[in-house]
């Protein structure tokens, strides 16, 4: 289900995106992106986690309830989790919540999991652009109900 967002609205809409980032990889990558003076959209609001294995369905849903238009979870590359398999557990939880969101009429693409290492500052910036563009195209999570 897509919101009926006009091209003008798509260009001006500034989505709020919550990024749950693992301390050992994505958070460090975001830090590196800053050190490298890479530009990425200010729409990304980072919440640092000790591991993406800490991600819970309720964190993701509450983020949407509290006003996020998109949520991303960014953890270590598969096979490289600091805690062995926290990122694989997060992956299953993210998929489960995505399925549930889709069943309720909310676009699953608003929630995404990414894997990257702490050395991938430019990849973090790329992901920030990708998510911002994607959510901007989808439009605000709420606010266009009459168009549905």
């Amino acid at each position: 289900m897509q919101n009926n967002v006009t091209p003008d609205e798509t260009e001006t809409f500034e989505p709020k995106i919550i990024a749950f980032c693992c301390h050992y990889c994505a958070f460090a990558a975001a830090d590196l992106a800053g050190t490298m003076r890479l530009q990425y959209p200010p729409n990304i609001h980072i919440i640092r986690l000790p591991c993406t294995g800490k991600v819970d369905a309720l964190y993701l849903l509450k983020a949407f309830e509290e006003g996020a238009d998109g949520v991303m979870v960014a953890g270590c590359e598969e096979g490289s989790c600091h805690f062995t398999n926290g990122n694989l557990r997060a992956k299953k939880r993210v998929h489960h919540v995505r399925d549930q969101l889709e069943q309720t009429g909310i676009e699953g693409e608003r929630l995404e999991m990414f894997n990257l290492s702490s050395a991938m500052g430019s990849r973090f910036a790329e992901i920030a652009h990708l998510m911002t563009d994607r959510i901007r195209k989808l439009g605000p999570l709420f606010g266009n109900e009459s168009a549905n």
């Binding site: 849903l61 509450k62 949407f64 309830e65 309720t104 009429g105 709420f142 109900e145 549905n148």
Partner: peptide, 18 residues
């Protein structure tokens, strides 16, 4: 916990449906 998750989902779904 499951009560919280379900309540959250239902609130989101109903808000989305207007």
């Amino acid at each position: 916990k499951e009560t919280g998750v379900l309540a959250s989902l239902v609130r989101l779904a109903r808000q989305k449906a207007g």
